[in-house]
């Protein structure tokens, strides 16, 4: 568990200028509030049905409070670099939120909480617009897929609440496609 006296020891703070590997389990946690690798794997599994084995070759790192990065392989922690793999997840809020890039890379392994859109609705989503849609499943963050070259392909992250699918596509990734 996190120690009560957090004063003085630099190892016990979260640093925004370096990457710290996530502790494997809560027993190894030094920085208060930092998620564990076990919790990250369970979250992907519980929310999207992604088998933890998918993430076995990867390590998870925090830089900036709650910003979790996924990196192939491992390095000695902490690492003083300016980028490590890709940002995959934001965790310092009640509902954890995956990134578009992580969903595109790993969302093909998901089995639940995926909403499949026909092309026109996918275009609306990609343009960053919210839309009213029927959905029988859970509210919250969903993986949005559509069909490309004959297969359902993960496109990004939507937030489903109040009969509405809200596009979480970041501004820089939005496109107006017909």
């Amino acid at each position: 568990m996190a120690p009560d006296d957090a004063d003085g020891d630099a190892m016990q703070d979260n640093h925004s200028d370096r990457f710290d590997r996530l502790p494997t389990t809560a027993d190894e946690r030094v920085v208060e509030g930092r998620p564990t690798r076990a919790a990250v794997l369970s979250w992907w599994n519980e929310r999207f049905g992604i088998d933890p084995a998918v993430f076995e070759p990867y390590s998870f790192w925090e830089r900036g409070a709650g910003k979790i990065w996924i990196f192939y392989g491992d390095l000695a922690s902490p690492v003083d670099v300016d980028g490590l793999g890709m940002m995959a997840l934001r965790t310092r809020q009640e509902h954890w939120k995956p990134t578009l890039e992580a969903v595109q890379r790993f969302g093909g392994h998901a089995t639940t909480n995926c909403i499949h859109l026909p092309r026109p609705a996918a275009a609306t989503f990609l343009a960053g617009e919210d839309q009213e849609l029927d959905w029988d499943g859970d509210w919250g963050y969903l993986i949005v897929t559509h069909e490309l070259a004959g297969e359902p392909e993960p496109l990004g992250v939507g937030l489903y609440v109040h009969d509405e699918l809200r596009s979480m596509v970041p501004k820089g990734r939005r496109r107006e496609l017909g």
């Binding site: 990196f71 000695a76 980028g83 490590l84 793999g85 890379r105």
Partner: peptide
């Protein structure tokens, strides 16, 4: 932005003068 868009995970980025590149961050435990 390009590495993330293309789904690259095996990358570490350093901002430095390549003439003085340091190997230090890339040791293992």
């Amino acid at each position: 932005s390009n590495t993330e868009r293309l789904g690259v995970t095996n990358i570490a980025v350093t901002v430095e003068d390549a003439r003085n590149h340091s190997l230090k961050p890339f040791s293992s435990q």
